[in-house]
Amino acid sequence: MARPKKFDPEHVVDAAMAAFWAKGYAATSAEDLVERTGLGRGSLYHAFTSKRALFQETLRRYDTHWTARRVEILEGPGSAPERIRALLMSVVEEETAERPAHRGCLAVNAAIELAGRDPDATDQVRRVFQRVEDALCAAIQRGQRDGEIAADRDARALAQFTLNSMYGLRVLGKTADRRTLTGIVDSVLRAL
């Protein structure tokens, strides 16, 4: 009797994430997933049951890894405006880095492609967005307490404005240059 091959599920999810991130959910074929993960089709579907279930797992992994990095920046050292600038500039850096294609944000890409049509993907993306919004709101509130951001402004509304700007950088980053994106960051900080 042949032994089943062992594999690292995190590695498989990371590899699948790269495929979905590069092509989107609909355009990623079973063959793409097999090629990226190194698993046979049967093993892949036995482990994750379906393409959709594997995609859900990649969104969870994205939240665990990539969203956590955004939150860490906002909870790090420095003034609130410095931390917010660091967050927005991390997006600019990623979007202007040398690579074959501007992939944007997996959550934004999923929202654009699937929101309203796939309730599970919509909920997962909503959780990603909410997590960043909450961290932004907390940073803004700290900045208001420290006198770095006007205290008479609604912290939640400022967080939503900044979140919208951050994800807008992701979309514009597919075509805009670094100078344009940095100008947007500067404008957001002036608005705060």
Rank of each mutant, 00 (worst) to 15 (best):
R127F: 08
A111F: 10
P81D: 08
R69E: 05
D63F: 05
A101K: 15
V128F: 03
A26H: 12
D32L: 09
D118E: 14
I73F: 03
T58H: 09
L33W: 02
L74C: 07
R127T: 12
I73A: 07
E35C: 06
E95V: 08
R52H: 13
A86G: 08
H46E: 15
R99K: 15
L74N: 01
S50R: 10
A110H: 03
P77R: 03
H65G: 08
D63S: 08
A121Q: 05
G38F: 04
Q56S: 11
C105D: 13
A115V: 03
L39H: 09
E93C: 01
S29L: 02
T49P: 05
P100E: 15
E94Y: 14
F129D: 05
L54G: 06
P77F: 00
Y62P: 00
A26K: 11
A53C: 11
T58W: 02
L44C: 09
A110M: 09
Q56V: 07
G42D: 14
E35I: 07
K51P: 11
L44I: 04
L74H: 03
H46C: 10
F48C: 04
V34H: 00
S79G: 11
R117S: 15
H102R: 15
T64P: 00
N109T: 13
E98H: 06
D120H: 12
A111M: 07
F55R: 00
Y62I: 01
L44Y: 02
E94M: 13
D32A: 09
E72R: 14
V128G: 00
C105V: 01
R85W: 06
L59T: 03
L44D: 01
M89E: 13
A47L: 07
A111R: 13
Y62K: 04
T58V: 11
T67N: 11
V91H: 01
L54K: 11
V71W: 03
Y45F: 15
P81F: 06
Y62D: 10
P81H: 07
E75T: 11
A111S: 11
R60N: 09
R52S: 13
E94P: 01
F48G: 01
E75W: 04
L59H: 02
R117G: 14
A101E: 15
S29I: 01
A86R: 04
V71L: 09
Y25I: 10
M89K: 09
E95I: 02
V128T: 10
R126L: 09
R60Q: 08
H102Y: 11
G38N: 04
T96G: 04
A26P: 02
H102F: 08
T49N: 12
